[in-house]
Simulated assay, not measured.
Amino acid sequence: MDWRKWIIERLPEKLRVTGMIAVCMVLTLPIRMLYEEFVTWQKKMRTKVAGTPQVCMLQKIIRDELGLDVRIEEGNGKPIDFIIKTTFVDVDKERRLFALLDRYKLAGKSYGYENAGIMITAQWTGFVCELANMESEWTGFVCELKGKRDNSVEADVLGYGFDLKVTAQYPVSEPLPIHFKVGSETTERTVHYTSTKENQAVIFPVDATGGNAIVESSVRLGITEDDEYVYEFRLI
């Protein structure tokens, strides 16, 4: 709107002088500013009301609202219906862009987003493992992996140290080594315990030539676990 012309047309001919026109322009400044704001708001509202999900309209709305040039490409619909491509680094504008897209896109449509202005860098300070796809096929029965049971093993020195009694809570099919020393011997002796039922005791006679007996503190279990059990050993 030409405000100068509008003011001159409303002044009497005798008052249409430069000084009076300047005074009127100053006095109408607040009204002119309000009018310009109203025109801007009106234009924006008309754009919103007339907005459609067409590609050209979406691009125009984004350009007018955010000052961004975007390119919209068609997706394959599984699951993206269209792709927004642009280049900028303003995070606030990115949020506003998503809000505009959600407002004007067709209901039920989905979109992807590609921003060439954002770069992500990463630095590895250790080993990097390669990610690979692996396929497996079972052609027979698959056995369930079960945890090992605890099996309590007890040893008792009998007959003044000339016999060694060993008992296990559960049957032991694989030979279980029991080590011990006799008298002042420096080399350990070993017996192997097996059983077929629970709490089955086996007594091992010890050759104690010269009257040397088993050193109780030296009796120990040779292993802590096998394929079936985790062993807990106790000397009684």
Rank of each mutant, 00 (worst) to 15 (best):
R103G: 04
G126H: 08
F127A: 14
K93W: 00
K148C: 04
D102C: 06
F88T: 10
T139N: 11
E114M: 07
M134F: 09
R95P: 00
Q169N: 04
L101T: 05
L176R: 04
L97P: 04
A155R: 06
A122V: 06
L131R: 14
N133H: 09
F127N: 15
M134R: 15
E137M: 14
L97K: 00
E144D: 00
V157L: 07
K146V: 13
E154M: 13
D102A: 09
N151C: 07
R96E: 00
G161E: 06
D150L: 04
E130I: 02
V172G: 00
Y113N: 05
G108N: 08
F98L: 12
N115P: 02
V153Y: 00
E114G: 04
E137Y: 15
G147S: 04
N133M: 11
F88E: 03
Y111L: 02
L97C: 01
T167I: 09
V142Y: 01
L106S: 13
V91H: 11
G126R: 09
K105W: 05
T139Y: 14
D156C: 14
G117L: 02
V91K: 15
A116R: 14
K148E: 08
S110Y: 11
W138T: 13
A155I: 07
S152Y: 12
F127T: 15
Y104T: 09
T139K: 14
S110E: 13
E94V: 06
K109Y: 02
R149Q: 09
I118T: 03
A155L: 04
K146R: 13
C129E: 14
A168Q: 02
G126S: 11
Y170L: 05
F162M: 10
P171F: 10
G140S: 05
F141K: 06
N115I: 00
V142H: 02
